[in-house]
Design a protein around this nucleic acid. Structure first.
Lengths: 251, 251
DNA sequence: CGGTGTGAATACTTTCACAGCT
DNA sequence: AGCTGTGAAAGTATTCACACCG
């Protein structure tokens, strides 16, 4: 980073709107799509795919945003990150948006997925129709249980976790899904990483330690439930407060 | 953003809650914990519970933050939202933090959970040990399939979705988990809402429309996969660019 | 007109850095 | 001497509001 420690360096530059602003460390990559926007693009894509199936060809930001559960300004901003594909006064062509979002999300290539840990959840994941349907073929399954090795689940034979390096290399796995019990997760993660897998989706309730170049996303049921619990509690508090402050309850 | 340009802007800083500050129109919110912080508190809680089991009694922000995968400033800030329970020069008492986080997250009450849609995923959820273990007893299961009604799954008998209102009321369900196929999700959601359930965790890949007073969180595998796909693509782009710009790849 | 695309304003989150307590 | 707690700065994300264009 540049200068810090301002001996009266006075921060001058308001967020650069000046033209001659040649930031030194600025990545001139246009690929600066906010993470939050990426997540929403995936949602828009699903909504749009549904519309395409119903032969809707054109849609406005207002309609699309309502269907996606966001407001229209956010939707337009999100779409603006990927380019200008709308027509003023009209709206967007569904098919164009589908293509462009798929391009940005990298869905034009297929991404082989492996699932590690074939318990209840692993079974569900291995059979999950949403994966292959949208460019994510599940191409390997792993477990430690001898009774499972060689058994077909969702059409794929389960391999032993010890074979992760070989099998992942052979089948060019790019995304690993961890659905093991918590104590096994870090070990499995390490094996996936050393097998060259750079993206991991973790269902085990543990914080995985990985090198910088590996991307981890986690799905944590307990955390989700606790967040909901927090909201239940907050609501109860508010109700109690409103009550006590003599508010008249409407309806 | 702070001061810039000489128009005595004086942005009065934000939501401070100084003591003795008699804000005019402040709506008495003692509970102003950022959503993002709430999610992390749940993670800290799990780490802390693990530490407690290993008889660790005291921990510094540096250690705890490392175990939780965040930096220590963020951890301290997050903890500061719930109060001052640390000892300067020493650290935090594990047990105190556990109690306080549980209190804030509303885990001192039990929250009955129902699962709707007893397919692969529903089975996995019904059997998920993480729920009852941490104050979220699964107390009702629902499906439409006649072959499933009355069958015990994870020790609970499956009821028909038509009985959602009655059963949810009887068992005081406060959190509904939707694990149905996409087309059924909105209908199930509506029934849960009219049964008085105010918090919903949605695994179906659809955007649920709910009244304002209902809190929905979603877990969307396809979206997660697509976000990872985006990162795979970005990485590939970066590699290509670095390559082309004649960069020497470091070891 | 009607609806997109986007600077600018606002709101929220993270990080810095250090005063103050133990 | 060390670590927490926290204002203030920096960085992101969301929303507003309107110029612009079909």
């Amino acid at each position: 980073m540049g200068a810090r420690r301002g001996e009266d360096v006075e921060v001058v530059t308001a967020p650069g709107r000046l033209p001659g602003n040649d930031e030194p460390a600025v990545r001139e990559r246009a690929r600066a799509i906010p993470e939050a926007a990426v997540a929403r693009l995936a949602v828009y894509l699903r909504v749009l795919s549904g519309l395409a199936e119903q032969d809707v060809t054109t849609i406005s930001s207002e309609e699309l945003s309502a269907a996606a559960g966001v407001n229209s300004a956010k939707l337009r901003k999100d779409l603006s990150y990927i380019g200008s594909y709308g027509t003023r006064g009209v709206g967007y062509e569904v098919e164009v948006l589908v293509d462009q979002i798929e391009r940005i999300l990298g869905l034009t290539r297929k991404h082989s997925v492996c699932v590690v840990g074939i318990g209840n959840l692993g079974h569900a994941l291995a059979n999950y129709a949403g994966f292959p349907g949208r460019g994510f073929p599940v191409s390997a399954l792993f477990d430690v249980d001898d009774d499972l090795i060689g058994v077909p689940v969702g059409g794929i034979l389960v391999s032993h976790v010890d074979d992760i390096p070989r099998v992942c290399a052979e089948r060019e796995v790019s995304i690993g899904v961890i659905a093991t019990p918590p104590p096994a997760a870090q070990g499995v993660c390490d094996r996936l990483v050393s097998a060259g897998v750079q993206c991991i989706l973790n269902f085990a309730p543990v914080v995985l330690q990985v090198p910088d170049h590996v991307e981890v996303r986690k799905v944590d049921l307990a955390v989700e439930m606790q967040i909901l619990s927090f909201h239940v509690a907050r609501r109860a508090d508010e109700a109690a407060n409103a009550d006590e402050s003599g508010m008249v309850v409407p309806g």
